[in-house]
Nucleic acid binder design. Sequence first.
DNA 1: CTGTTAGCGCCTTCAG
DNA 2: CTGAAGGCGCTAACAG
Lengths: 347, 347
Amino acid sequence: MTRKPTIRDVARLAGVGIGTVSRVLNHSSQVSSSTRERILAAMDELGYRPNVVARHLPRRTTFQNIGVLTPILFSYYSFSERLRGVQSVLQSHRSAYELMLFSIISPARFHERLMEIIHTRTIDGLLIIDLVPTTSDIDALRVAGLPFVGLNHVMRGDWPCIGTDNIRGGQMATRTLIDYGHRRIAYLGDNADDLAGFVTGDERLKGYRRALEAGGIAYNPRLVFRGPHDVQTARQLTHRLLQLKPLPTAIFAMSDTQAMAAIAVLNEAGLRVPDDISVIGYDDLEISQQIGLTTVRHHLDLSGKLGTEYLLACIEENADAPVPMLPPLQVIVRRTVGVPREVNINA
Amino acid sequence: MTRKPTIRDVARLAGVGIGTVSRVLNHSSQVSSSTRERILAAMDELGYRPNVVARHLPRRTTFQNIGVLTPILFSYYSFSERLRGVQSVLQSHRSAYELMLFSIISPARFHERLMEIIHTRTIDGLLIIDLVPTTSDIDALRVAGLPFVGLNHVMRGDWPCIGTDNIRGGQMATRTLIDYGHRRIAYLGDNADDLAGFVTGDERLKGYRRALEAGGIAYNPRLVFRGPHDVQTARQLTHRLLQLKPLPTAIFAMSDTQAMAAIAVLNEAGLRVPDDISVIGYDDLEISQQIGLTTVRHHLDLSGKLGTEYLLACIEENADAPVPMLPPLQVIVRRTVGVPREVNINA
DNA sequence: CTGTTAGCGCCTTCAG
DNA sequence: CTGAAGGCGCTAACAG
């Protein structure tokens, strides 16, 4: 007998019925200590381990997992700060849910991936970050009876989500620069072509355009630099930006990561921030405070917390839990934005 | 009938046997298209969804999950970069494993948590990061037949792990400062008291001491600052460090996060880095390059990759896969370390 | 306190 | 091509 021992093997060896073995497995007090000992010994001798899957079938319980679906490679520091919020709620929650992390590289496969998760995974709820499910996605989620909560740019809808207004955030950032007197402002963001579906960058760009318009500044597409959301690309884009003449006097980067990369390149080129050129980011990472980056705070850690709490409420109360609200976006003024000054390194 | 429909309900409605329903569920070609249509219609009408757990029982398959066990709050940016490596391997791997994230706050509960994971979770393998399982932990893992790989400070052993030599890293960092001429070097690290079990900080401190010794410098415990591994604590510790007279001429921070916090506080106090005081970190986060932090590179992303590849090899080949080796540690010289200069802000 | 009996929902032979 | 039967490993009444 080389196969894994089952409850029946244990019962046979201990000379009892499988019911009794099941009782000791479930810590029932209804077993005399002598037979308990005998059964424990038998388990030990056989190296018996209860089959986790089999236990759930008659018991009709779930695995107590919640899933997080996110474009992880998108901007991983902010993801990390958000995840910290998720974890802190999960760990303090009375019913201990574990975390499954589903990430997608290509938004084109979002739908496909979602279906796969719904039908083959054992989760009790799903938190969908930075991605917006379509109507058919939502239907599928509902039909499957899988509670879900979105954490993204959608402000309201007939599905549960905690929205954050990226347009407004982009507008606030750009407006800040304009208020300082800037009129030639570049935008540094991710690539809409590759990332259709991850609309965050589009939204913030839209906010940028609105602020320009409100400030009476003409939109100039040559001041817009976009590419895949990673540090190397941000650096390359900044190098291209440095070819511009005249140079922009300020940059709005759609993420703190890109802002920091830009600042690095600017410094390497001999430009001082904010004396020669101003930079504002978006995220307010914990690290941004340390390096003095002026940025837009959208409460990453808190959003992870609220999203998770909301999801848990949806799972457990089953009713329509109240939708939590994130605090308003905030421009955090630090040291990378100043008044404009014309410089020309391309002279 | 308000309960969830089962395969039997579908069979009844479609007027077929459950075997045939099962066949269409499993995309068997052995079903005539007419009956398939009928069954599909019945499923649709009932809103039938196969029970995921029940499918696994007779099939004797696993859920294809791999777990990552880590002290997540420990230092989450480095965790994040490592995780990126894990995810990249998982997503490119032919058999699509999903990721379960188990984090522990208190190392005291490491063992307990591990047992819980082994016995109640459905994973095919476990990657244990920055934590070292005891002999009994390892036994339990083996008895349960759960493949596991460690990613930590243990360099070798009778269990599968990819080691990184924190002592040597700490030594290299400190040695670098000494080579620049520093003799009064502070150490900024995490708190051993709270975090017994997370020995990373102890190891790097040990390396610090060895380097001092080799450099003929007496160890001064008053130059050692330790506390919980978070930005606020790092800032407070740096403030305390600033009370010292004379001031140290250099700081070795056991993580880049702490190094950046320290630099921020130093700057706020009017000290310039590295002109007035030098700082070296440990991690080489992606962001560290951008801000010019001198640090020790231990290949975070790559370690996540190698660890995951190794684990997958252990799972699939079942044999003793060759233990991968991380490239050697490297001091990355950037702009936060210079020659010492006595300054006294406490005059 | 304990053994026995039904399932949990599905897959997989095995006959037809 | 299809139906019926017999598990997968365990839990949960139910009788004793």
